[in-house]
Design a protein around this nucleic acid. Structure first.
Length: 575
RNA sequence: GAUUCCGUAGCUCAGCAGGUAGAGCACAUCCCUUUUAAGGAUGGGGUCCUGGGUUCGAAUCCCAGCGGGAUCACCA
């Protein structure tokens, strides 16, 4: 296939060929021995200048400053950058200066990956650098990298187009060190949580992503099809039911970092696939879980920032425990100024109307209360706040409140006006559970398309007996957004979902196709330049005009090839 | 889904009372043995997102489409 390339890419492809002609493999197979990284050098060298006198290091060329027979290169590895000092007579001790003059100065580019040996020293300008004794090409880069420069915190020519950054995350990671840092932090958040759970001796498990019944949450699933079984399967929207079956099975605590999938809208806080941590612990209740969450988040914040206070947008959010606790009724009382306790569905609908909150007939009591809460309360909850005791209709998997049968023992943790965690004292009464599923069924008949499906295997598991148990789910993407102060979920996902890139790639004909109809090879490039990407296009052309145009281009491009005659062009068109 | 803004060189952007494009960095050539967002000189590089329309003439005005951002709605 013919691929259109820019001038800079063509130059790099030429350099590639020249390297090969010099007997240099631009993509060598053998391992390159590395004995130090940039971070170790910057940390240790200042205190002991005798260190690192025989090093071998590899990385990507990020900038070059060539001053005749000596040059400076910024080399970037996984940990940062270091300057290389490359002197011609040092890497080319004999008469042959090809390695410096041709290979390094002309055939290497920003973006190429090299390995060097040498020793660490400090330049006259006071910068820790590597005096290079030998240099080896490890990978030639064929595309020019955006060159981002920085001085005194000011960034020049940043690679900032969000579309390009998300689609080509590899480029983003190469040139934007703060992006790499977000993903290092994301990993740190997960590993802190994992060790926190493991210290409690809870078991990390894996449960099915392809599920015959998409249970455990209210959401629209993705559907797929299994050929051998000839049946539909759903991508999981939650793993809650499977984890509770494992509690029935006798594990005291289980957790899973799970990818969930929801076929819903996308925006700054929603991606179709996202990561959730769910944990279930036997013999606990939601009060215990609140304390556990407090400890966990405090530890994550400390692990990342060495303090509990975290900057999120314009707010300073303090994850120091304990967090504020507020029942849902009290929250609505406090922020909306109405008392909803004991109100009927009709009365609640009236309240919504009086507050100009949009409702529809499919909404049950639970959804109405949730609407009031969402509209009037959520955005006030900036500092971490537990909202407790949700109406029973909106929590079909949650245990009834121990003192009020209208409510459930459920809490959500709100941070910066957004839900972060969701947790229950889990419902373990199989008869109540079946009834609640049936209520969901009638909600769904009423028109609520997210009401839950009935999972009879889950009910059967409960019939064998599940210990009292508390479970909690937390969105890892949102947690990462808070902990790294990113306003968009796309910035905490390595590869956020995007519409496929329209390859406006000119699916032009290859050289051979043109040659086949009689076009001399040397003229193919000129024809493309003139806009003829396929032989079919060429056949539509006016031969006189084409002769003129091509002649003009030949002159403009200073081509040293014989001029065309009208008969030549006519013969292509007639071929 | 609605509203709105954006799409020009490899990157970041300018150009838009309509006359077929400019800058900085990057790239190329030459000169420079320690520089640091960094030399100096010269030069090359663009289906101005796509397709229609208005016009003698469209990067510029109009319509449609594609892609992206933001806000809202939906959704946790």
């Amino acid at each position: 296939m013919y691929q259109e390339i820019s001038e800079q890419e063509a130059i790099r492809r030429n350099s590639l060929k020249e390297l090969e002609a010099l007997g240099i493999n631009p993509y060598p197979a053998e391992a390159y021995k590395v004995n130090v990284n940039t971070s170790e050098i910057h940390t240790n060298f200042p205190t002991d200048n005798n260190l690192y006198q025989e090093i071998s290091i590899a990385g990507r060329i990020m900038t070059r400053r060539i001053m005749g027979a000596a040059s400076f290169v910024d080399l970037q590895d996984s940990f940062g950058r270091i300057q290389l000092y490359i002197k011609r007579d040092e890497i080319c001790p004999g008469e042959d200066k090809t390695l410096y003059n041709t290979v390094f100065k002309r055939l290497l580019d920003i973006g190429d990956i090299i390995g060097v040996t040498g020793y660490v020293f400090i330049t006259q300008m006071g910068e820790i650098s590597i005096h290079v004794k030998s240099l080896k090409i490890l990978s030639k880069s064929l595309r020019p990298l955006p060159v981002v420069k920085e001085k005194d915190e000011q960034v020049f020519d940043a690679f900032s187009d969000p579309e390009a950054r998300y689609r080509m995350r590899y480029v983003d990671l190469i040139v934007n060190p703060e992006v790499r840092d977000i993903f290092v932090k994301r990993n740190k958040i997960i590993s802190i949580m994992r060790s926190f759970f493991n210290e409690s001796d809870y078991l990390e498990v894996e449960t099915p992503i392809l599920q015959p019944i998409p249970g455990g949450a209210a959401a629209r699933p993705f559907i797929t099809h299994h050929n051998a079984l000839d049946m539909p399967l759903y991508l999981r929207i939650a793993n809650e039911l499977y984890l509770k079956k494992l509690i029935v099975g006798g594990f005291e605590g289980v957790y899973e970092f799970a990818k969930d999938f929801r076929n819903e809208g996308m925006d700054r806080t929603h991606n179709p696939e996202f990561t959730v941590l769910e944990i279930y612990v036997a013999y606990k209740d939601y009060f215990w879980m609140m304390e556990y969450v407090e400890q966990m988040l405090e530890r994550v914040a400390l692990g990342l920032h060495k303090q509990t206070e975290v900057t999120v947008g314009n707010h300073k959010i303090d994850f120091k425990s304990p967090f504020r606790r507020l029942t849902m009724n009290d929250a609505i009382q406090e922020y909306a100024g109405v008392d909803i306790s004991g109100k009927t569905e009709k009365e609640l609908a009236e309240i919504c109307k009086s507050m100009n909150i949009a409702i529809d007939p499919s909404m049950g009591k639970g959804k109405l209360i949730d609407a009031i809460f969402g509209e009037k309360c959520e955005h006030h909850l900036i500092q971490p706040t537990f909202i407790m005791d949700y109406p029973i209709e909106m929590s079909p998997l949650c245990k009834r409140h121990r003192t009020n049968p209208e409510l459930t023992e459920r809490f959500e943790l709100f941070v910066n006006g957004k839900e972060l965690c969701n947790a229950y004292s889990e419902l373990n009464d199989p008869i109540d559970q079946l009834n609640r599923f049936q209520d969901q069924l009638s909600l769904s008949q009423k028109g609520d398309d997210e009401a839950m499906f009935i999972d009879m295997d889950f009910v059967r598991a409960l019939e064998y007996g599940m210990p009292t148990c508390s479970g909690m789910g937390i969105g890892i993407d949102r947690l990462t957004m808070f902990m790294t102060n990113q306003p968009s979920i796309q910035d905490v996902l390595l590869f956020p979902q995007m519409r496929p890139e329209k390859k406006s790639m000119p699916t032009g004909d290859p050289d051979e196709a043109f040659v086949k109809i009689g076009v001399p090879e040397s003229w193919v490039e000129v024809l493309r330049k003139q806009g003829f990407k396929t032989t079919a296009q060429l056949k539509e052309a006016n031969p006189n005009k084409l002769l003129n145009d091509l002649g003009g281009l030949r002159k403009k491009m200073k081509l040293d090839i014989p001029a065309l005659k009208l008969e030549d062009i006519k013969s292509w068109i007639e071929a």
